[in-house]
Amino acid sequence: MSRLQERSRLSSLPLHISGNCTRSISPRTTSISHLHRMPLETSGSTGCGWACLGALTFDSYALGDQVTLSQDRRKASRSKTTFRDGLVFSSRPVRVNERVRLRVENHVAGWQGALRVGFTTVPPRDRSLPLPQMAIPNLTDIPGHWAKPIQEKDCHAGSELEFWVSRGGTLYLRIMGFRKVKALEGVNLGQPRWAMVDVYGQTTSVLLLGSEQRVLMGIRRSCPAPKHLPLQNMADHSSVNHANEEQTKMVCENGKISLRGRLEKCASDSEASKHCVVCMAAEASVTLLCGHRCLCLQCSFRVIREFGTCPLCRRPL
């Protein structure tokens, strides 16, 4: 088969990308040895396609004790009554040269130090809770963690920055669009890396603006973040507060029954019950994606965080 015939044949085939996206191969870019160098979409659209890096939000499981996430998990806020316990991590691994973009939303005077950013090879869902109080030195003293403090003068409300890891394992920073700065070296490229952000000191709130990866033929960008948590009726509750878990400890009958045991026991109860199947006291006000209304608001935080499935039908949330 001639090269021209081969290109004609390939031009009619769809190229399957991750997710539900497909893209037809252009005849001028169908050389089999160069498929990985196909032109990328460079428009402002971040819809799922060849140029899409996937959604990037903060992980809702591994949160510092004083952190509150917005409903779309893009904004992380720390209590102003303390300077620490502000750790958050990205919801997925970040690629080499994928630049994570942040904006400082709020800051307060009175504390020393400010935002810290970096990467880790430890998956957020594999971490034990509660998290350490600070990224530096609590986590950076542990293998698999790299972080750099940002100067206070660069962390006023409205300041924007981006950070990424190069192919040489170097952590770079760029603040307010100025030239990049080499922060540190030696980041492990042999394992997936999650972005790590410590909302520390004077920094009390940051917004995750997304990410982008500059490649030879264009720019790849992260998807827009989902607008809502995987709950259907949380319009009256604009945030997920890690501290709400403390209010769910009463469901354990004086500590004699674990939450898992309670869920297993209640899964066989009537699905039409008006009471939460965990605490058996408050009204079941939260409707899950599967359609079951079986949890009160307080218990739903812990169930989603620790199990991630409906207690009745076990459908993932």
Score class of each variant (00 low, 15 high):
63 L>N: 04
58 F>N: 03
130 P>A: 06
74 R>W: 02
78 R>M: 15
77 S>T: 14
79 S>R: 15
116 R>D: 14
102 L>W: 05
110 G>V: 05
126 D>E: 13
101 R>L: 14
73 R>Q: 04
67 V>Q: 02
127 R>Y: 07
128 S>E: 14
60 S>P: 07
77 S>Q: 11
90 S>Y: 08
134 M>L: 09
72 D>C: 02
114 A>W: 04
113 G>C: 11
67 V>G: 00
64 G>Y: 04
62 A>W: 07
125 R>T: 14
99 R>I: 13
104 V>F: 05
96 V>C: 10
92 R>P: 09
86 G>M: 04
68 T>Y: 14
131 L>H: 10
111 W>V: 07
87 L>A: 02
79 S>A: 15
113 G>F: 10
67 V>W: 00
123 P>A: 04
70 S>I: 00
61 Y>S: 09
62 A>N: 05
114 A>E: 13
117 V>M: 12
68 T>W: 09
131 L>K: 03
66 Q>F: 06
82 T>E: 08
111 W>Y: 15
132 P>L: 00
100 V>A: 04
117 V>G: 08
76 A>F: 00
89 F>S: 01
61 Y>D: 06
113 G>M: 06
134 M>W: 03
105 E>I: 12
124 P>N: 02
108 V>G: 01
94 V>S: 10
91 S>M: 07
117 V>H: 08
58 F>G: 02
100 V>D: 09
100 V>P: 07
63 L>Q: 05
116 R>Q: 15
133 Q>T: 02
100 V>R: 12
58 F>Q: 07
94 V>C: 15
112 Q>C: 10
103 R>S: 07
91 S>W: 11
72 D>L: 02
120 T>E: 08
74 R>N: 01
135 A>N: 05
94 V>R: 10
113 G>N: 08
77 S>C: 09
80 K>G: 15
78 R>A: 12
61 Y>F: 13
94 V>N: 07
89 F>M: 09
76 A>W: 03
115 L>F: 13
94 V>K: 05
107 H>L: 10
96 V>A: 01
101 R>Y: 13
112 Q>L: 13
72 D>G: 01
120 T>P: 03
58 F>R: 06
70 S>N: 00
68 T>M: 04
119 F>H: 12
130 P>F: 05
80 K>M: 12
103 R>G: 01
110 G>F: 13
86 G>Y: 04
78 R>Y: 11
86 G>L: 10
71 Q>S: 03
